[in-house]
C-alpha cells in the first residue's frame, strides 16, 4: 500500500442537502443529509463508512461520483475538483471511479441481457475479438458462468446480480470503486465469496474501495480505515484495529457490541 503517496480522493467539508421543489421545500426548508464531512482515500486503500440507516452514506457516495451536487465543500479526485469539471471532463474522469449501488437489481437495465450490460462497459474497446476475450476473463474472475450472458436481470439471483454489477464496475479498470452495501442482501456463503473476490481484485489492480455498510463486523475484515457516521456527521475515524479495539465514542461502542465483534474475537 502506498500510504505515503498523495490521496486519490480528497473530500473537504462536504455538506449535502435535498431541496426538492414543491410542497416539502416550502414547509420544512432544506433537509441536511450530510454536514461537514471530510476524508481522504489513498491509492490501494479500502475506506469504510459505517453508520445507521439514513445517516447519509449513500448521499456521500452520490456526490463523490458526480450525481448529487453538494451544497458546499469540495471533492478532489485525481487532483481534479469534480464539481468544477465540464460535462465532457467529468465523463472522461468517470471511467476511473465506478459505483456499485445499494440496490443491485435496480442498477441493471431490465430490458438488457446480462451480456449487453457487461459489453456496454467495454465501450472503449473497439475490436470485437478483444472485447470478447476481456469479457470472458472478467466473467471468470467474478465467478459467473458464460451461460448467464443470455439472461435478463430478472432471471438472475441476487448474488449473480451483484457479481454482474461488480463485473461492470471492474470492466473499465477504475482506480476507485464505491461499494454501497454490497453484501447486505447476500447470504453468508455468498458474502464470504464476495469479500474474497474484492480483496483479490484490490491486490491485482491496485484498487481503492469506499465500502459503505451498516455492519461493522463485515467491514473490519477488509477495510484499512473506518469512519463511523451518524446523522450526517463523521463521529469517529481511524485505522480499523484502532476503531475496533479502542473506540473513543460511545456510539461506536454500541455499534461494536451490536455487531458481536468481541464474540468473534474471543470465540
Amino acid at each position: 500500500m502506498q500510504f505515503n503517496s498523495p490521496p486519490l480522493l480528497e473530500v473537504k467539508d462536504l455538506c449535502i442537502s435535498y431541496r426538492k421543489g414543491g410542497i416539502s421545500s416550502s414547509i420544512k426548508g432544506p433537509v441536511c443529509a450530510v454536514k461537514g464531512v471530510s476524508f481522504s482515500v489513498k491509492p490501494g486503500e479500502t475506506y469504510a463508512i459505517v453508520g445507521e440507516s439514513g445517516s447519509g452514506k449513500t448521499s456521500i457516495a452520490m456526490s463523490v461520483i458526480g450525481f448529487l451536487r453538494p451544497l458546499t465543500g469540495t471533492i478532489f479526485f485525481m487532483n481534479k475538483n469534480i464539481w468544477e469539471l465540464d460535462r465532457s471532463g467529468l465523463r472522461r474522469l468517470r471511467s476511473n471511479i465506478q459505483p456499485v449501488f445499494q440496490n443491485s437489481g435496480a442498477s441493471l437495465n431490465p430490458r438488457m441481457s446480462a451480456g449487453k450490460i457487461i459489453s456496454e462497459a467495454f465501450h472503449a474497446i473497439v475490436d470485437e475479438h478483444e472485447k470478447e476475450k476481456a469479457l470472458i476473463d472478467l466473467l471468470r474472475s467474478v465467478g459467473l458462468d458464460r451461460e448467464i450472458l443470455r439472461r435478463f436481470p430478472h432471471e438472475l439471483s441476487g448474488g449473480q446480480k451483484q457479481r454482474l454489477n461488480i463485473a461492470r464496475a471492474l470492466a473499465l479498470k477504475p482506480r476507485l470503486i464505491i461499494l454501497d452495501e454490497p453484501l447486505s442482501s447476500q447470504d453468508l456463503s455468498t458474502r464470504a465469496q464476495l469479500i474474497h473476490l474484492l480483496s483479490s481484485f484490490k491486490k491485482a489492480y491496485l484498487l481503492s474501495y469506499i465500502l459503505i455498510s451498516h455492519n461493522l463486523s463485515l467491514v473490519r475484515l477488509i477495510s484499512d480505515r473506518i469512519a463511523i457516521m451518524k446523522q450526517g456527521v463523521f463521529i469517529e475515524e481511524g485505522a480499523t484495529e484502532q476503531i475496533i479495539n479502542n473506540p473513543s465514542n460511545n456510539y461506536t461502542k454500541v455499534l461494536i457490541e451490536a455487531s458481536n465483534i468481541k464474540n468473534v474475537k474471543t470465540g
Binding site: 471511467s95 449501488f101 442498477s107 441493471l108 437495465n109 431490465p110 465501450h123 454489477n165
Partner: peptide, 26 residues
C-alpha cells in the same frame, strides 16, 4: 433517476446512447 441509468452514466457512456438505449426503451 433509476439506478441503471445512473450506472450507465457512471460508465461514461455518451448522452445519446443513454437516452436511446436506456431511457427510451423503458
Amino acid at each position: 433517476e433509476q439506478l441503471y441509468v445512473k450506472s450507465a452514466e457512471a460508465l461514461g457512456l455518451r448522452r445519446r446512447r443513454i437516452i436511446f438505449r436506456h431511457i427510451l426503451p423503458n
